[in-house]
Simulated scan of single mutants.
Amino acid sequence: MVEVLTNESQKQIIQRNAIVAEGLSKTYRTGFWLNQKISSLQDFSLTIRQGETFGVLGPNGAGKTTLLKILLGIVKPTAGTGEILGYPLGDRTAKQSIGYLPENAYYYDYLTGWELLDFIGSLFGVAPTLRRQRIADLLDLVGLSQSVARKKQLRQYSKGMVQRIGVAQALINDPEIVFLDEPMSGLDPVGRYQVREIILMLKNQGKTVFFNSHILSDVELICDRIGILNKGELVAMGTLNELLGTEQSYQVSGHGGTEAELKPWLEHLIFQNDTWHGQLAKDLPEFLTYIASIGAKAIAIELARQTLEEFFIDQIKASRHKE
């Protein structure tokens, strides 16, 4: 019998927390005497609802992979706590419901693609009959032929083919949460499109997807919310409308005034040298009257939101400016 979920039941499922992080930090010791400290994650807090697609952006070395490995229980945090599906980080019960695609995965390259998926499915305890059917379905999903998967060893695969097998192995246990570290890496435009479609399919199935990516256009198309990491710190988080504004909002830049005077009026306010810019949160005529009263002046007003790329670059520059 197929269980039919009512709209109310679906809302309750979506409203459960899939991932919770509170004050996560990670510090590594380095140097000959291990007397130097490098902080790769600092006081990171986050709550992701079940069924949500969350993307993490950041330059190289921002702490994205460290964060992901802490959430997976591969690396222990120096400070802070977290939960996956209500279980503490690293709990074996939660791991049964997790799928993971590493950024630079190493698979046993003497295996064929089919053998790899069969092996990983057996580790999760998937029954042999179900395993064979699921492998066939996943190969079709990621665009690899079954004949190639059965006959060709992984050492003979291209980078794009290895990435496709990686996506398939992350889904072999039908996980509730899927962690993807740079899932578009090494893929041609067709492969990227297929992975986007897979993520959207998982989203439609009510699964939670957490992924890191450098490809901003893909993040913009897929994610419910995004977070931007820089040098281990979360510098921005929210929906695209919250971060970039809607078409009815204004991007305003100008000079004069102080941060304390302008912050109540402008969201995502950034000062660079003598100029500032941000998203207007209140009435435009009132804002213009106000800045005139404090000796400030608007030099540009645009009825359009920033692109994600522009917002990302601005946040990284502002973060570096504070150092």
Results as ranks from 00 to 15, higher is better:
5 L>G: 04
10 Q>Y: 12
10 Q>E: 12
12 Q>D: 08
12 Q>F: 10
16 R>M: 07
16 R>E: 09
16 R>I: 02
17 N>K: 11
22 E>V: 00
23 G>K: 09
25 S>M: 08
26 K>L: 04
27 T>L: 01
30 T>L: 13
37 K>E: 13
38 I>Y: 07
39 S>E: 14
42 Q>D: 03
43 D>E: 13
46 L>G: 00
46 L>Y: 03
47 T>M: 03
48 I>N: 01
52 E>D: 03
53 T>P: 01
62 A>W: 02
62 A>V: 03
67 L>E: 01
68 L>I: 14
69 K>H: 08
72 L>M: 03
73 G>Y: 14
77 P>L: 09
80 G>I: 07
84 I>Q: 06
87 Y>I: 04
87 Y>S: 04
89 L>T: 00
89 L>A: 04
92 R>P: 15
93 T>G: 07
93 T>L: 08
97 S>K: 13
99 G>T: 04
105 A>K: 09
106 Y>Q: 13
106 Y>C: 07
112 T>C: 05
122 S>G: 06
122 S>K: 15
123 L>Q: 11
129 T>G: 09
129 T>P: 05
129 T>C: 05
129 T>Y: 08
130 L>F: 15
132 R>L: 09
134 R>F: 08
135 I>W: 15
135 I>Q: 13
135 I>V: 14
136 A>E: 09
138 L>W: 09
140 D>H: 10
140 D>N: 13
141 L>Y: 14
142 V>L: 08
144 L>W: 07
147 S>Q: 12
150 R>Q: 15
151 K>V: 14
152 K>P: 06
153 Q>P: 15
153 Q>Y: 11
154 L>T: 02
156 Q>W: 03
156 Q>M: 10
156 Q>D: 12
159 K>I: 13
164 R>H: 08
166 G>P: 09
166 G>F: 06
168 A>H: 02
169 Q>M: 07
170 A>W: 03
171 L>N: 03
177 I>L: 11
179 F>A: 06
179 F>M: 06
183 P>V: 07
184 M>L: 15
187 L>Y: 01
189 P>M: 09
190 V>R: 07
195 V>H: 06
200 L>T: 11
204 N>I: 00
206 G>N: 07
207 K>Y: 08
208 T>C: 01
209 V>I: 14
210 F>N: 08
214 H>C: 04
215 I>Q: 00
216 L>H: 02
220 E>I: 00
220 E>A: 14
227 G>E: 02
228 I>M: 01
232 G>S: 14
233 E>F: 00
233 E>P: 00
238 G>Q: 10
238 G>E: 10
238 G>C: 11
243 L>D: 02
243 L>H: 07
244 L>D: 07
246 T>K: 15
247 E>F: 01
250 Y>C: 02
252 V>W: 14
255 H>S: 13
256 G>I: 13
258 T>V: 00
259 E>Q: 10
260 A>E: 11
261 E>M: 08
263 K>D: 10
270 I>G: 01
281 A>R: 08
282 K>Q: 15
283 D>A: 08
284 L>Q: 10
284 L>F: 05
285 P>L: 05
288 L>I: 08
289 T>S: 13
293 S>T: 12
294 I>Y: 09
295 G>T: 11
296 A>P: 00
297 K>E: 06
298 A>D: 06
300 A>H: 12
301 I>V: 14
302 E>D: 09
303 L>F: 03
305 R>A: 04
306 Q>H: 06
306 Q>S: 05
306 Q>E: 11
312 F>N: 06
321 H>M: 01
